[in-house]
Design a protein around this nucleic acid. Sequence first.
DNA 1: ATTTGTACCATACATTTGTATGGTATTTTT
DNA 2: AAAAATACCATACAAATGTATGGTACAAAT
Lengths: 207, 207
Amino acid sequence: MAKELTKIQKAIYDFIMYQKFRVGRTPSLAEIAEKFGFKSRATVQQHLHALEKKNYIKREVGLSRNIEIIKRDTLIQEPIIGEVAAGSPLVVYSNVIDMVELPGVVKLPKESFLLRVRGDSLRDANIFNGDVVIVNPNLVIQDGHIVIAILEDSAVVKRFYRNEDAIELVSENPEYEPIIVRRDNNKFRVVGVVIGIYRNLELKKRR
Amino acid sequence: MAKELTKIQKAIYDFIMYQKFRVGRTPSLAEIAEKFGFKSRATVQQHLHALEKKNYIKREVGLSRNIEIIKRDTLIQEPIIGEVAAGSPLVVYSNVIDMVELPGVVKLPKESFLLRVRGDSLRDANIFNGDVVIVNPNLVIQDGHIVIAILEDSAVVKRFYRNEDAIELVSENPEYEPIIVRRDNNKFRVVGVVIGIYRNLELKKRR
DNA sequence: ATTTGTACCATACATTTGTATGGTATTTTT
DNA sequence: AAAAATACCATACAAATGTATGGTACAAAT
C-alpha cells in the first residue's frame, strides 16, 4: 500500500504538513501550485491523487482545503513540550512549542516526552543544537546517564554523576565547566533521563 | 477592545475552536450556518465580523476556511500532557491527551504543565475525577503541598509530608491509605507541585 | 419615542477552489 | 522498441465559498 513517495510528492506532502500544523491552515491547490511554481492546479490535483493512492493523505471530494494527513505507521507526530540547554541553563517547560515527525521505529514509551536541545555542550555525545531529545521521567537515574535537570528555574541536559555529598552535571564538551550541585539543594531536580534523540536531517540544513 | 461575546457569538467561536483544533478542519461559513440552522451564510459572516471586531478571531479576505483564533488574554488553549491518579497509582506522562481552554486569570507560569486527575482520593481537597491540575515542576516542595509524585512507573497526586527518614503521601480521602516512601528510595520522585486546578463545568456534565 | 445593537433572511455576485479531460515531454520499466 | 509511470500544461466547468446590500423583527438603551 504505502509505496515510496517521489521527490516532488514528498515535498508537497511536507509542505502540506508544514502549512497545516505550523501555519495552521491547510493549503488550497492553488497555494500549493504557487509554492512549487506549477502553472496549473491540475498538476497539484494529480500529485494529491498520487499521495492519496499511496495512502499518505485522504480527502473528501468537493471540500476546499481539506487534506487529512494519514497517520503513518512509519511516522509519528509528537509535540515538543519545551527546550533545554546543553550549554548554559535555558528555559524549559514552555508549552508545546513545535511538532516533530518521528520514524515509527523510535517507539516512544508512553510516559516519555520531547524537548528540543539548545546549545552544543553535548557535542561529543553526538547531541547537537536543535536536536529533539526523548525524555523518560520514570527511569531510575544511573551514573553516566544523560539527564534533564532543573536548576533554579531553568534546565540543562548533561551527563549525571553522583558521589557522597554532591551531584555533578558534566558536559561532554570541555568548553563548559561541570555544574556541581550539593545534595541538599532543593532547587535542583532531575526531570528525566534522555532515552533517545531525534534529528531531522532534512530540516537540519535549514538551520 | 475585547468586549464580551453574546451567547451565539460564543457558541460560534467555540464551534470554530472545536472544528479547528479537535476535528482538524476550519469550518466554512456554510458549515457554520448549517450547524446553527442559519439559512444564510450572510448571518455567519456578520457574526464573524462581530468576532473580528471584538478581536477574538482574524481573517484574511477571500481565503476560504481561514479563521485565525486570536490567543485571548482571557482564554488560553493548553495541552494536557498526561493523567495522574488521585487514588491508586496510574499512568502518567503519555503525550498530549487533550486540550483545555483556561480562563486567563489562571495565569499559568511558563514552566507549568497540565495533567488530568483520575480517581477521587483528593475529594476533600476539592479535587475530583476529571479535573485538570496545573503543575509547576520548579517550585520548592513544602509540607502540605499537593504534589505529583512518581512511584515505580506510575504517578499519584497527593499531599506531601516529610519527616526524618520518610516521605508520606496522604490522600484527603480516608478511604485511601497514606503511601510511605523511604528517603533512600530512588524509584520515587516528585514531579511538581500542584499550583492550581481547573474544572470545566460544561464538559463535566458529559462525564 | 427614537436610536442603537443584536439576530436573522433573501438575493445577487465575484472569487476561490476542486474537478475533469486531453495533451506534450521525459524518464523508467518491461 | 514499446509500454508504463512521472511530471507537467492549458482549458473548461461546476460547486463551494466569501462578500455585499438591503431588508425585517425585536429588545435594550437613551
